[in-house]
Simulated assay, not measured.
Amino acid sequence: MYTPPVFRDDDKESLRATIRAARLAQFLTATADGPVATPLPLYLDESAGEHGVIYGHLAKANPHWRVPPLGDGLAIFMGPDAYVTPAWYATKQETGKVVPTWNYVAVHAYGPVEFFDDPGRLLEAVSRLTDLHEGTRAAPWAVSDAPPDFVQAQLRGIVGLRMPITRLEGKRKMSQNRHAADRAGVAAGLAASERASDREVASLIPL
């Protein structure tokens, strides 16, 4: 990921927070037939290794897991993002030398890829992922709410994914390369937006 120093995020907790907050990731591998990508909900087990281990699952019918990866896999986690119009820059009034851009948060996680179909490991991965996304509901649904034979049948239709993270790259592009008046203009413009994601980006711009 191209990351100028001003946008680089090397803070370990910040990177993990972005991974935890992302509801859907892009999982990619390079193969002899070219790159292969699958959108997947993934979760991070922070208790293992220096950077943690990523888990998820794919449909067994998805050919992605059958194609041997060349080198490490890549999981892309996106945080909040927003379009930035030049109209918000004080510099527009001063010189007119401005262009549109996009503010965003992104984390790229790399590591060796393992696919597995052991029922016990699959059940644990599916249960943890379900608990993660059901946890904020008033009456959370759990995998154990479904009949055991039904759950086992569903497990036979998926393949687990495990990727120990060996390298993390973080980028937090939040107008840090603009002077204070331009940043303030962007923050004010986004804060007034009807989009919740725009308002979230506004709160992340350093003033």
Results as ranks from 00 to 15, higher is better:
Ala30Leu: 11
Ala21Met: 03
Ala125Leu: 06
Lys173Tyr: 08
Ala17Asn: 13
Ala82Met: 07
Asp118Ala: 12
Arg23Gly: 13
Gln93Asn: 15
Arg199Ala: 12
Ala138Gly: 04
Ala17Trp: 07
Phe116Val: 11
Ala75Leu: 04
Leu161Ser: 09
Leu129Thr: 04
His57Trp: 05
Leu70Tyr: 00
Ala32Leu: 12
Asp118His: 08
Pro63Asp: 10
Ser175Asn: 09
Thr38Phe: 02
Arg156Lys: 14
Ala17Arg: 15
Ala61Ser: 14
His51Ile: 09
Val67Ala: 13
Leu207Cys: 04
Asp81Ala: 12
Leu207Pro: 12
Asp72Cys: 03
Val143Trp: 02
Ala188Leu: 05
Trp65Ile: 14
Lys92Gly: 07
Ile158Val: 14
Gln176Ile: 01
Leu15Cys: 02
Val113Asn: 07
Gly71Tyr: 14
Lys92Ile: 05
Arg167Gly: 11
Glu94Asn: 06
Ser47Thr: 15
Asp45Gly: 09
Gly52Glu: 10
Met174Asp: 01
Leu122Lys: 08
Ala202Ile: 02
Ile165Gln: 05
Val67Asp: 09
Leu155Cys: 02
Gly56Cys: 05
Arg195Met: 13
Leu204Thr: 07
Ala22Gln: 12
Lys171Cys: 11
Ser193Ile: 01
Thr38Met: 08
Leu42Pro: 07
Met174Phe: 07
His179Glu: 10
Leu42His: 06
Ile76Lys: 03
Arg23Ser: 13
Ser197Thr: 15
Leu204His: 02
Thr29Glu: 01
Val143Arg: 00
Ala59Thr: 01
Pro69Cys: 13
Met78Tyr: 10
Thr85Ser: 14
His133Ala: 04
Ile205Thr: 01
Lys97Asp: 14
Gln154Thr: 02
Ser193Gly: 09
Glu94Leu: 14
Leu123Pro: 10
Ile76Ala: 03
Ala109Pro: 14
Ile165Thr: 04
Phe7Ala: 07
Thr136Met: 10
Ala61Leu: 11
Leu74Met: 13
